[in-house]
Design a protein around this nucleic acid. Structure first.
Length: 213
DNA sequence: TGTTGATCATGC
DNA sequence: GCATGATCAACA
C-alpha cells in the first residue's frame, strides 16, 4: 500500500518532521518505515516484527535501482564465541525472512520527495544460505582464534565485518592473539551491495511488477 | 566511482 | 557501552 509514496507523505502520516538531509539523521528513513509499518522489536537484537519473525530493511537505491550502500545486519560477537554456529546465529535469525523496501537515494532528489518502492519479501535459497554460513563460520573462527584485529572489510563473500561504533575510540571486549581479553573496536556484520543488488535483480526477473530490466 | 573505515541519532 | 536505525566521506 505504501509503494510509490513519498517520504514526506509517510512522515506526515505519523506526525514526524522530515530533516533537511541525512547527515545528522542517518537512520531516519529506516525508523520512519518502522513507525509506519508498526515494527516492534525496538533496539533488541531480534527481527523487527517479532511475532512474524521478519526483519525490515530499507535499501537505498540509485536511479537505476542499484543499492548505493551496504546493509547493516547486527553486531559481531567478539568475546563469547564458544558454541556459536550459523544455525543459532543472530545473522541467520534476521536473514531467514526479510522485507526489503527499496528507497530512492539519489542525492539530487530532496529527502521528502524520495519514493518507497514495492516491498520485496525475501528468503535465502539453499545456495545463498550455504555461502552466508561459510562467511559467518570463517569470521567466527578467526575471532575465536584471536584474529579480530586482522579482519578487514575486503574479506568475506557476501558478509563483511566493519567497525560499528559511535566513533573510533569506542572499545569493547575481544579475544587477543594469546587468548587473553583485549579491548577492541566494536564491529558489525554488513551485507555487500553486490548481495542486495542480486535481491533486486532476482525480484525484477520473477515478479509481475518487476519488468525485465 | 566503489569501498573501507568512521561517524550520527536514539533508547536504555 | 551496546544495540537499534543507517549514511558519510576520505581514499584507492
Amino acid at each position: 500500500m505504501i509503494a510509490g509514496m513519498t517520504l514526506s507523505s509517510l512522515a506526515a502520516s505519523v506526525n514526524v518532521e522530515v530533516p533537511l538531509d541525512l547527515r545528522r539523521a542517518k537512520g531516519w528513513v529506516g525508523q520512519l518505515l518502522e513507525n509506519v509499518l508498526g515494527a516492534n522489536a525496538g533496539n533488541k537484537p531480534e527481527p523487527d516484527f517479532i511475532d512474524l519473525g521478519i526483519e525490515l530493511k530499507t535499501l537505498p537505491v540509485d536511479k537505476n535501482g542499484k543499492p548505493t550502500e551496504s546493509t547493516y545486519v547486527c553486531v559481531v560477537p567478539l568475546s563469547d564465541t564458544t558454541g556459536l554456529r550459523w544455525n543459532n546465529s543472530i545473522v541467520r535469525a534476521k536473514m531467514n525472512h526479510m522485507l526489503w523496501l527499496p528507497i530512492e537515494a539519489d542525492k539530487q532528489i530532496p529527502l521528502g520527495q524520495r519514493r518507497v518502492g514495492a516491498g520485496i519479501f525475501w528468503r535465502p535459497d539453499v545456495d545463498t544460505e550455504v555461502q552466508l554460513a561459510a562467511d559467518y563460520n570463517e569470521f567466527i573462527e578467526r575471532i575465536s582464534l584471536g584474529e579480530v584485529e586482522s579482519i578487514t572489510a575486503d574479506q568475506g563473500n557476501w558478509l563483511q565485518i566493519r567497525p560499528k561504533a559511535a566513533n573510533s575510540s569506542m572499545l569493547t571486549e575481544g579475544i587477543g592473539e594469546e587468548g587473553q581479553s583485549i579491548r577492541t573496536l566494536p564491529r558489525g556484520f554488513y551485507l555487500r551491495p553486490s548481495f542486495t543488488r542480486g535481491i533486486i535483480e532476482q525480484w525484477r526477473s520473477t515478479s509481475p511488477e518487476g519488468g525485465d530490466k
